[in-house]
Design a protein around this nucleic acid. Structure first.
Lengths: 224, 224
DNA sequence: TCTACCACACTACCATACAAGTATGCTAGT
DNA sequence: ACTAGCATACTTGTATGGTAGTGTGGTAGA
């Protein structure tokens, strides 16, 4: 559980971050009923900031609010997952083409450093670090091409997909291949080979389509 | 001014829609200071739904909230405008490629009907209708490829761009060319020619980069 | 005249009270 | 036994009071 005092932000943000984290960790599973009052007592704040956090989560499609009835953690929507993946693929394809044109040496360096760390983590079988570095790699691409908001938008849509992934504990991503792909992308950017870079990143993101059907059979109550 | 009774939705939505419309129409110009109390008195509702509407507008980057100081209509951010256009271009390029693969006859019909109406409006010099039909055309592409959320996301990012456009009263879009492009796109989809369709829509969206510098010089206070 | 300080008005933030809609289970009547 | 209907305990929606932080203008003092 998060600690309120750790946040320099508002109570509202504290509640929002707490709930979002709980939902993402599936500590609050899809379909779970939560009420403003219950959460406010649990976090020892009043209903107002809780309510405001609820509204934000509703905007994020992470909470379904039924007036006078109750609020429920949103079920995982596979259409949502696919749309998020689709938008991400299109956006990142465009971003990496831009990167080939305008990436600064500084940005390129950061990217290369990141890949080096990825290799290290891969050799250490440190999947957690790899997960973080992978995310960071794509963020660097977006930041380096001045597409901060695009990145934020993509991340915001990626929530259902992230929960799906969390669901699949046994999911064994092929990290070796992922790291190689990242390395190849950096090469393509250095060569300013737009076509190659775009093809690489599209293939890369296609790997994120893992077996949804099996998961849906295993946890039918979590899907809509 | 909107009328509250027209809304079957909540007071919160009424306030949100009212404010959003005012901001988009530049009735509330960029930089304008508004307060919860002021709006609540104006719309004759309590501060709570106003506050909740403020928070949503903040999420949309349409309102800058400074705690204990005040809330201000967000200045137009040209970086924001470009990022929105960029994301839209990437997304719609992907969508139209999909449309070439999987568009149903029904969707294609709707699209053709839309273009016919566009031609009529063009011949009548009815720019307002053309504006709506243009928007509808792109929405049909997204809906027909089951990318409703992608469309919603793009629209949500398009707010700064829409205000910029509103600012340029004298902006004379070349509707004749736009309609022809739309027609050509439908042709490309019918031919299932992905490359042609994609090239067309990218060129189409590039037309939306109009003279930002002149506008910024004309209304320096509206930009950041 | 200039400056330091303070009172005041204003803000958004949070807590709480009340209103209104909904689901559920008990009870009275058949 | 069964059902209609109401009491009740929930829910979210709205209203309002109080708190703490911020900017400003006036004033007292040098």
């Amino acid at each position: 559980m998060l600690n309120r005092t750790k946040f320099k932000h508002s109570t509202r943000d504290f509640v929002y971050d707490s709930l979002r984290e709980s939902i993402m960790d599936l500590e609050l599973p899809p379909g779970a009923a939560i009420s403003e009052k219950e959460i406010s007592e649990e976090l020892e704040v009043s209903r107002t900031p809780v309510r405001e956090a609820f509204l934000r989560l509703k905007e994020d499609e992470l909470l379904t609010v039924l007036p006078q009835r109750g609020s429920f953690v949103a079920l995982i929507d596979l259409d949502h997952v696919e749309e998020a993946r689709f938008l991400r693929e299109q956006a990142e394809a465009g971003i990496i083409r831009l990167a080939c044109e305008q990436f600064s040496d500084d940005c390129l360096n950061k990217l290369e450093m990141n890949v080096i760390e990825q290799k290290k983590a891969r050799d250490d079988d440190d999947e957690n670090t790899l997960y973080i570095l992978d995310k960071e790699f794509h963020r660097l691409l977006a930041e380096g091409t001045d597409k901060h908001r695009v990145w934020k938008t993509i991340q915001k849509m990626d929530t259902h997909s992230m929960r799906l992934r969390k669901l699949s504990i046994e999911l064994k991503l092929n990290w070796k291949k992922l790291v190689e792909q990242h390395e190849a992308m950096v090469e393509a950017i250095k060569e300013k080979n737009q076509k190659k870079a775009e093809d690489l990143i599209r293939a890369h993101l296609a790997l994120l389509i893992y077996d949804q059907k099996a998961l849906k059979d295993m946890y039918p109550d979590y899907f809509n």
